[in-house]
Computed example of a mutant assay.
Amino acid sequence: MSVCCPSCGSRHVFRAAAHPCACGAPVAPILRADAPAEPVTHRAWADEWVTVRCAACGRDGDWPRPELGCPCGTALRIPVAGAGTDPVPPGAPQPARAPHTERPAHIPLPRTGRTPRPPFRPTTIRTSQDAVTAAALYLRWLGFKSVVRAGTVPSPGGPEDTGVDLRGPDVVAQVDPTTSPASLRAVECLWLNGLGASTASVYFALAGYAEDARSRADALGLPLFAMDLTGTPQPVNGPAAELVSAGP
């Protein structure tokens, strides 16, 4: 389905992700082409789900509402058919997701000579702690070793500054599950934490990034990823695309 971002006017082709029903059949919600995508300005966990009926067994299940991260930093909620509707039949053709339309700040390096990664297996996000877990899984999938949860690390600007949620021998990461785009200050605080630990810094956010935060991250070479409730991060700047392509 073609999706237009109301913030920047960019158009994308979106395909709803399929999730396995308890019976094993893939289930995907029906997308509404007659309704516009809406920016995500407020998140309530109870409102982030849609009920879809499995065409194979007739069971109703709750699945994450489809979302798309626009390169401009806006998180878009894709309209779907009402609760209890039949999904797209398994195997039915759908438009493929459009490739990332933003020109990356760096040319992604090929993974020549590296062992190919297995497919990433996301974990559904229902709570803020699930978001941290999903980011940890993704960092390990990228190739960072021994990534664990970390306590909040005080930042130079004061106790209210953003800290670190995940830490490994060669990486620190922040996971922002809030309803507001990540700020310039948050990005700079994470970069300072990485600088102090002599490690890479990686940022994950559910609501995207402020424009000045993205510009600063590009200048610092800090990878930014957007997350949706399926738990699959998507790169939103050049350093992130390069990290996915070349690894740590």
Rank of each mutant, 00 (worst) to 15 (best):
T115W: 02
P116T: 04
R117L: 05
R117V: 02
P118V: 07
P118F: 00
P119G: 06
R121K: 13
P122K: 07
P122I: 02
T123Y: 08
T124E: 14
R126T: 11
R126K: 13
S128R: 09
D130M: 04
D130P: 00
V132I: 13
V132E: 12
T133C: 05
T133A: 05
A134R: 00
A135Y: 00
Y138S: 05
L139Y: 11
R140W: 06
W141M: 04
L142N: 01
L142H: 00
G143K: 03
G143M: 08
F144V: 06
K145T: 14
S146M: 07
S146W: 13
S146D: 15
S146Q: 15
S146K: 15
V148K: 11
R149M: 05
A150Q: 06
A150E: 04
T152W: 11
V153F: 09
V153K: 03
P154T: 07
S155F: 05
S155I: 02
S155K: 08
P156S: 13
G157A: 09
G157Y: 11
G157M: 08
G158L: 05
G158F: 15
P159G: 05
E160Q: 12
D161H: 15
D161W: 08
T162D: 04
V164D: 01
D165K: 01
D165S: 09
R167V: 11
R167C: 12
R167T: 05
G168W: 01
V171H: 02
V172P: 01
A173P: 01
A173F: 08
D176E: 11
D176A: 11
T179I: 02
T179E: 14
S183I: 09
R185E: 14
V187F: 14
C189I: 09
L190M: 07
L192A: 14
L192F: 05
G194P: 10
L195V: 12
G196Y: 07
G196H: 13
A197K: 11
S198D: 13
T199A: 12
T199N: 04
A200I: 00
A200G: 02
V202F: 12
F204N: 06
